[in-house]
Amino acid sequence: MKPQTIATAVGAALIFGAGWAANGWRLGQDIAQIQLTHTQELAARDAGTFAVAQAIDTNYQGALNASIQEQARLAGAAAVATRNAGRLREQLSEADKRIATASAAAVRDYAATANKLLRQCSDRYAELAARADGHALDARVCRAAWPVN
């Protein structure tokens, strides 16, 4: 082979190798840029997901705290109702003793008053039942509307 042909071949090989290396570097830069963009997109998505999760957690904690306060309030109201019921039982026991020795007119007045009171209790019980049904319906609607994964 002629030295000129060998030099040409070596020169062509060097040019080809340099082009190959330059193209590899360029593609390496492109890949690095794509990886950086993908990483940034993942970070932005994860930040958005974290913000949503944190908002849900904050809302849940607020609802839980409100529920705990409401339970305490209801427990206090139940204790008051229990004390009042005890006093009412004592009063009824005393009334039984007084009725045994009362006149007929006093017993009739007592019966009329008791009937009026029972009528009022019945009306209030019906109102309470209607409100309880409304609350139960609201709870069913909330459970049915709650998203399920």
Rank of each mutant, 00 (worst) to 15 (best):
I31R: 11
R124Q: 14
L36M: 00
A114G: 11
T49Y: 12
V141A: 03
F16N: 12
Q29I: 04
C121I: 15
Q4R: 13
R131A: 02
A22L: 08
F16V: 12
A105M: 04
A105I: 04
E70W: 07
A7I: 06
L117I: 14
D96N: 08
K2F: 04
A105V: 06
I15W: 00
L92P: 02
G17H: 07
A51K: 08
A81M: 06
R45S: 08
P147S: 01
T8S: 09
A102C: 01
N84L: 10
N23G: 05
N59A: 15
Q91V: 00
K2G: 10
N149L: 12
L42P: 01
A13C: 05
L92Q: 06
K2Q: 09
P147E: 00
T39R: 00
A144I: 03
A21C: 10
I15F: 06
R98Y: 01
I99W: 04
A9T: 01
N59K: 14
D46K: 08
G11S: 11
A21M: 11
A136D: 13
L128W: 05
A72R: 11
R45T: 08
Q35S: 04
A145P: 02
G86S: 02
L137K: 13
E94Q: 03
L14C: 10
G17F: 07
T8R: 01
F16G: 12
I68M: 12
C121P: 12
I34W: 01
E90L: 01
A104W: 06
L137M: 10
V52H: 15
Q69K: 14
Q61V: 09
A72D: 11
T5A: 09
A106C: 05
L14R: 11
T82A: 14
L117R: 15
G11H: 05
Q71T: 12
L14T: 06
E70T: 06
Q54G: 06
A114D: 15
A111D: 15
D138S: 12
D138C: 13
Q29S: 06
L128C: 09
A136G: 07
A139N: 12
H135C: 10
A12V: 08
P147Q: 03
A81E: 09
T101D: 05
F16K: 13
A66P: 00
I99G: 02
W20K: 08
A111K: 14
T8A: 11
A51Y: 05
Q91Y: 00
G17W: 08
A105E: 10
Q120T: 14
L117A: 15
L117K: 15
L27M: 08
